[in-house]
């Protein structure tokens, strides 16, 4: 087959499939502008009361339910919390995305911090113990953190190959209650990873086992200012 033949064969597959579709849906109303009737969306926008404290508690609860480590701290304690988690893990090296705020790393001792310059290979990352990232947002009802490759999250490979992931969530601004509220805040043109607990499988007798290929330990730090008491 010449290249030209191949191209025309591909063209004909496309035309064939589209032709079959049009023949098949011939009974669809003609000329209708495709738009789903919004009245069909009768489901709820959220299942949680609009109270940031309640939403944050639910996020913590659901993250923990799927075996993420959940750590709550104030902005002032963030650097110390990160340092403590690395030390407890005994991490020799941790990788950070280029846009991770440097003050977060201020208390680290005994762990080499490797700043990703975009050239670290997966093989190299395989020898790195931990990764520290921010997130785009977190969803309380499902216990999910969403990474969208923003500057404080970096390339997807960073949060994939090391076996320990520390993810920092700022409340209340990065926390939404539900999926319907999460999606409009995310830009689908960016590559995304939605993470709900550490890697797991139920493939053996439906027994959930933490950790197959992704990070086997997920620590989520929920950062919030203490409520101003009167």
């Amino acid at each position: 087959m010449t290249a030209a033949d191949k191209a025309s064969a591909a063209g004909s597959s496309r035309e064939q499939v589209l032709g079959r579709i049009r023949a098949a849906i011939g009974d669809a109303p003609a000329g209708e502008v495709p738009r789903l009737d919004p009245a069909l969306r009768t489901y709820r926008d959220t299942h949680v009361p609009d109270d940031p404290a309640v939403v944050l508690d639910l996020l913590a609860e659901n993250l923990a339910d799927y075996r993420a480590g959940v750590h709550r701290c104030t902005p002032e304690d963030l650097a110390a919390t990160i340092a403590r988690l690395l030390a407890e893990r005994g991490a020799r090296a941790a990788v950070t995305p280029p846009g991770l705020p440097r003050p977060w790393l201020g208390a680290i001792a005994g762990t080499e911090v490797i700043d990703d310059d975009g050239t670290l290979t997966a093989q190299r990352l395989d020898a790195v113990d931990s990764v520290i990232t921010g997130c785009a947002l977190a969803v309380a009802e499902t216990g999910t953190v969403v990474l969208d490759a923003g500057p404080d999250q970096g390339r997807r490979v960073l949060s994939l190959v090391p076996d320990h992931h520390i993810c920092v969530v700022h409340a209340p601004e990065q926390v939404v209650s539900s999926l319907p509220r999460a999606l409009p805040r995310l830009d689908p043109r960016r590559p995304m990873t939605w993470i709900s607990g550490p890697s797991a499988t139920s493939d053996i007798e439906l027994d959930r086992v933490e950790g197959v290929h992704g990070p086997r330990t997920l620590d989520v730090i929920l950062v919030s200012s203490p409520p101003r008491s009167g």
Binding site: N62, Y66, G143, V157, M192, W194, S196, G214
Partner: peptide, 21 residues
């Protein structure tokens, strides 16, 4: 499917992204 609120990982991508994937 798995009777979970959410599965551990969901990946979304659109075409290709420079320097990622």
């Amino acid at each position: 499917s798995t009777a979970e609120r959410m599965n551990p990982y969901t990946t979304t991508w659109t075409g290709t992204t420079d320097g990622d994937g």
